[in-house]
Each structure stands twice: as structure tokens, then as C-alpha cells.
Design a protein around this nucleic acid. Structure first.
Lengths: 115, 115
DNA sequence: TTGATTGTCAAGCCGACGCTTAAGTGATGG
DNA sequence: CCATCACTTAAGCGTCGGCTTGACAATCAA
């Protein structure tokens, strides 16, 4: 089970549109820092800062070979976010089910109480 | 398909730990503004501000009856976030599959090209 | 009506965050 | 070796976001 601080880090990381754009770029395969920077129109330094956040959140891993750092998506962080959302959704739907059961007043309810 | 601005709003809303705590509270059923404020230890005004963000993101709906505003989770916003994450994850896993295919050098590959 | 409850609005404070520039490091190519 | 490339680090700047306080509804109970 992921710790609270893991959840905090992942959602904080995904909260920024620039970082999400980087994640989307990485969706089509590993990329270097400058390749990530190009479509964003911001400085390399800014990208590096975002990468640090993404790495600490477990959404991205990087590996430096020679003078280029290669970045790729990491499933771990995504599972954390996915799980949290799935948990909330299941709660909503459980309520919905109960509501439906109440509203639909079936002709043959579990325990008939109509006249 | 959700618009970019929808995605922005949802992830921005979920990016704040206080708002996520509110969502978790609402997981066990609808609650009033002051009920939401109690476990957080912040002012009512702050909670109302967070509620505005949550409502604009489609994660929460509220309805005022009498002098109490009742807040509940709304599936719509969650689907937006879930979808975005699922999309990224599918990309990661697709890569993984291809990698496995390459690494495992099957004895009977789809199109044999060995000597 | 009076008073308490429940929430809303406006203003302002302040720390966190995203970004920039500038200077520095290490690998690579000629 | 020297220049270039691909980052990295540090410092600083401006804005945004979360929170508070205080004044102001609106509703309910006695």
C-alpha cells in the first residue's frame, strides 16, 4: 500500500500542466532533457527542475549515459494515482448502487412491505 | 472526450492535499461545509474556497438547502483523471510488451528471419 | 424579535512554485 | 588541446495559491 507521502508527491507532480505535458511526450518513448524542453519552449534548467519532481514522485526514471540524460515513464507512480482514484470511485458507485436500490422500488423487493 | 482545460482543472484540484482530504471525507457520504472543515482544522472560508475549485473541476457537486450546503462526490471529474492516467499507462505497457517480445527471442517469431 | 447557527464575500498576507539568467561541469568531436 | 554540446547548479524574481480575519447575509429555534 502506498504511503500518504507517496500520494502527495504523485498528485503534486501531476498538478502542473508543464509536467503533464512532459509525461505525455514521454508516452511516445524515452527522451533526453533537451528533447523534452523543445516542445515546451522553456529553458533547460526549468525542465531539469520539473524532472526532479517527476522522479521523486516515481512517475519517471532517468539515467545518464555520457552527457545525455535519458528519461522514461515509470509505471509505479501511475499505479499510485490510479489506485487512489479507483478507491474514491468505488465509494461513489457503491452509494449509487444503494440509491438505485432505494429508488427502483422493485415489484419484488427483498422484504415486501407494500399493502 | 474531455477537453484539455477539464484535465487541467481536475489535476489542479487533486494537486492540493487539503482538497484530497475533503474528497476522502466525502467518500463516506455527503457532508456539509462545516462537517468538511472540522477534521481539517481550517476556517470555513478556506473550505468554501476549496469547494469552489472542486466544483469547477467536476469532482464535487453541492446543493444548498436552507442554510446548509450539502456536498457530494461526482463521478464525472474522476473519470477524466482516470482516463488520462489509463492512457499514459497503456503507452508504458505497450512499450513493455514490445521490449519483452524483443528480449525473449522466441523460437517461433511471427515472421521468421533467421538463417 | 432576538440570538445562534451556517455559510459567503472581500481584502490582504506570505510562503511556495515556476521560470529565468549566469556561471560551472563533464563528455565528445575535430 | 580546444571548442562545442548537453546538462547542472545557484541565485533571484514575480506570480499564484492557500489561509486568515472581519464584516455581512440568510435561516432556524425559542
Amino acid at each position: 500500500m502506498p504511503k500518504q507521502s507517496d500520494i502527495d508527491r504523485v498528485f503534486h507532480a501531476l498538478g502542473d500542466p508543464t509536467r503533464r505535458a512532459m509525461v505525455e511526450t514521454l508516452g511516445s518513448g524515452p527522451a533526453s532533457v533537451s528533447a523534452l524542453a523543445k516542445p515546451l519552449g522553456i529553458s533547460l534548467a526549468a525542465v531539469v527542475q520539473h524532472l526532479q519532481v517527476l522522479e521523486e514522485s516515481g512517475l519517471v526514471t532517468t539515467e545518464k549515459v555520457g552527457r545525455v540524460r535519458s528519461c522514461r515513464l515509470e509505471p509505479k507512480g501511475f499505479r499510485v494515482a490510479e489506485q487512489w482514484i479507483a478507491d474514491r470511485k468505488s465509494l461513489i458507485e457503491r452509494k449509487f448502487d444503494r440509491l438505485e436500490a432505494l429508488l427502483s422500488e422493485e415489484p419484488t423487493p427483498p422484504s415486501g412491505d407494500e399493502p
